[in-house]
């Protein structure tokens, strides 16, 4: 009934199909716009995910084995303590990277968007994005060169330092960063920082500066203005950038593998191992499904809490 009330005044015709069909046709026409992307998504995302889900229901599936979904054993395995530990670690890497990128990236994006001279802005941004033009693998190897036992950083730290010895301080010991979690966090943060800065920049650039003046006018010092106006106003950007970094970090394979050494197994490495080393495709599929769930939850949280002002 309510739809009838809200529709434009039409004579009370019991069959409203003549009115409805042109609208429906137009709607379908617009749906056609989704066609190419829809087929793309269907064939390369939805379908493989469904196949993956089916594989995950086959206990002990090996390559060449019969796909005959019969139970949830693979999922039960996911919740074994060691696998939970791996997931916890993956969340730690992704979350830690997000926090580090946010802490490092926000001031940079803020500075470029609000403080830097306008004519330099694009150049600064390009400069920040420049590392993305090289292979991520190459950048990871560069970090190995820097962080390793005999690497650049340790050479600098342990080289004879006249200031320290003059002050009577002991020399700095070598840092064992490589092959442990700090190296992973460093490598991942470095890799994702440009994305963080770019998205935050886009968000901060749109920030209405009069709001900052208004806050200042109402007695807020710069720190209060930042916390109570700048951050809430750019929250959608912060959430989007954090989510992007978090999700990419959750799926990162290269950094933990190359920088993390022996005790940094992550969910993506574990999945890789199931498919390419131990040939446990069923379990690998179950792990993949769990990873997809984790990411979906993160996105759902963003949609629910990320953007209060836009929701209103």
């Amino acid at each position: 009934m309510s739809t009838q009330i809200s529709s434009p005044p039409t004579p009370p015709t019991p069959k409203s199909e003549p009115q409805a069909s042109p609208t429906a046709g137009r709607w379908l026409g617009y749906l056609g716009l989704l066609g190419p992307a829809g087929i793309w998504l269907g064939l390369l995302l939805v379908l493989p995910t469904l196949v993956l889900f089916e594989l995950s229901l086959v206990p002990g599936l090996e390559p060449g084995g019969l796909v005959n979904p019969s139970g949830l054993e693979n999922y039960l395995r996911v919740f074994e303590p060691v696998n939970l530990l791996v997931m916890k670690r993956s969340l730690f890497f992704a979350g830690g990277t997000t926090v580090i990128c946010l802490l490092l990236g926000f001031p940079v994006a803020y500075w470029i968007a609000l403080l830097a001279p306008t004519k330099w802005r694009n150049l600064l941004l390009v400069g920040f994005v420049l590392p993305l033009w090289t292979s991520s693998l190459l950048r990871t190897y560069a970090w190995i060169t820097i962080l390793r036992y005999s690497g650049v950083l340790n050479t600098l730290l342990t080289s004879p330092n006249p200031w320290l010895s003059n002050l009577g301080l002991p020399t700095i010991p070598r840092l064992e960063l490589l092959n442990d979690w700090p190296a992973v966090l460093i490598g991942m943060s470095y890799g994702y920082l440009p994305y963080m800065v770019l998205i935050l920049y886009a968000s901060l650039e749109k920030l209405d500066r009069r709001l900052l003046e208004a806050a200042s006018d109402l007695g807020a010092n710069p720190i209060q203005t930042f916390c109570q106006v700048t951050v809430p106003q750019t929250m959608p950007g912060i959430a989007a950038a954090s989510l992007l970094v978090f999700i990419t970090g959750l799926g990162d394979f290269v950094d933990p593998e190359l920088l993390g050494g022996d005790s940094t197994m992550t969910i993506s490495r574990l999945i890789y191992n199931q498919f390419l080393k131990t040939n446990q495709w069923g379990f690998g599929s179950a792990l993949s499904m769990v990873l997809i769930m984790l990411v979906s939850i993160a996105i759902a949280l963003l949609l629910k809490f990320g953007d209060r002002s836009a929701a209103s």
């Binding site: 379908l47 390559p63 796909v67 005959n68």
Partner: peptide, 11 residues
């Protein structure tokens, strides 16, 4: 794929 999914062999 859909038809044979009741018992298809993987690759």
């Amino acid at each position: 794929l859909a038809l044979s999914s009741c018992g298809w062999t993987l690759a």
